[in-house]
Amino acid sequence: MVLSLSLADQIALELRADIIGGRLLPGVALVEGELVKHYNASRNTIREALHRLGQEGLTRYVRNKGVMVRRLERDEVRDLFVVRRTLELQAIAQSSALARDQSARMQDAIDATTLAREREDWRSVATHSLVFHQQIVGLMRSPLFDEFFAQVIAQLRLVFCAAPDEQRFQSPWLERDREIYTLLARGDKPAAGEAMSLYLDDSERLSLALFDHS
Results as ranks from 00 to 15, higher is better:
residue 26 P to A: 09
residue 26 P to W: 06
residue 26 P to M: 07
residue 27 G to W: 11
residue 27 G to R: 03
residue 28 V to Q: 14
residue 29 A to C: 00
residue 29 A to S: 09
residue 31 V to N: 14
residue 31 V to S: 08
residue 31 V to W: 06
residue 31 V to E: 15
residue 32 E to F: 04
residue 33 G to Q: 15
residue 34 E to N: 06
residue 35 L to D: 12
residue 35 L to I: 02
residue 35 L to F: 05
residue 36 V to N: 01
residue 36 V to I: 15
residue 37 K to T: 09
residue 37 K to H: 07
residue 38 H to I: 00
residue 39 Y to T: 00
residue 39 Y to N: 01
residue 39 Y to M: 03
residue 40 N to R: 13
residue 40 N to G: 08
residue 40 N to Q: 14
residue 41 A to T: 01
residue 42 S to M: 02
residue 42 S to Q: 05
residue 43 R to K: 12
residue 43 R to N: 03
residue 44 N to V: 14
residue 45 T to F: 06
residue 45 T to L: 05
residue 46 I to M: 12
residue 47 R to F: 08
residue 47 R to G: 15
residue 47 R to W: 10
residue 47 R to C: 09
residue 48 E to T: 14
residue 49 A to I: 01
residue 52 R to P: 01
residue 52 R to T: 08
residue 53 L to T: 02
residue 53 L to V: 03
residue 53 L to W: 11
residue 54 G to F: 06
residue 54 G to T: 11
residue 55 Q to L: 15
residue 56 E to W: 15
residue 56 E to L: 15
residue 56 E to A: 10
residue 57 G to T: 05
residue 57 G to D: 06
residue 57 G to S: 03
residue 58 L to W: 07
residue 58 L to H: 05
residue 59 T to S: 09
residue 59 T to P: 08
residue 60 R to M: 10
residue 62 V to M: 09
residue 62 V to R: 14
residue 63 R to S: 06
residue 64 N to I: 00
residue 67 V to N: 08
residue 68 M to I: 14
residue 68 M to E: 15
residue 68 M to S: 01
residue 69 V to K: 02
residue 69 V to D: 12
residue 69 V to Q: 10
residue 70 R to Y: 01
residue 70 R to H: 02
residue 71 R to C: 06
residue 71 R to H: 13
residue 71 R to N: 06
residue 71 R to E: 13
residue 71 R to V: 13
residue 72 L to K: 01
residue 72 L to Y: 04
residue 73 E to H: 12
residue 73 E to F: 12
residue 74 R to L: 12
residue 75 D to A: 07
residue 75 D to S: 10
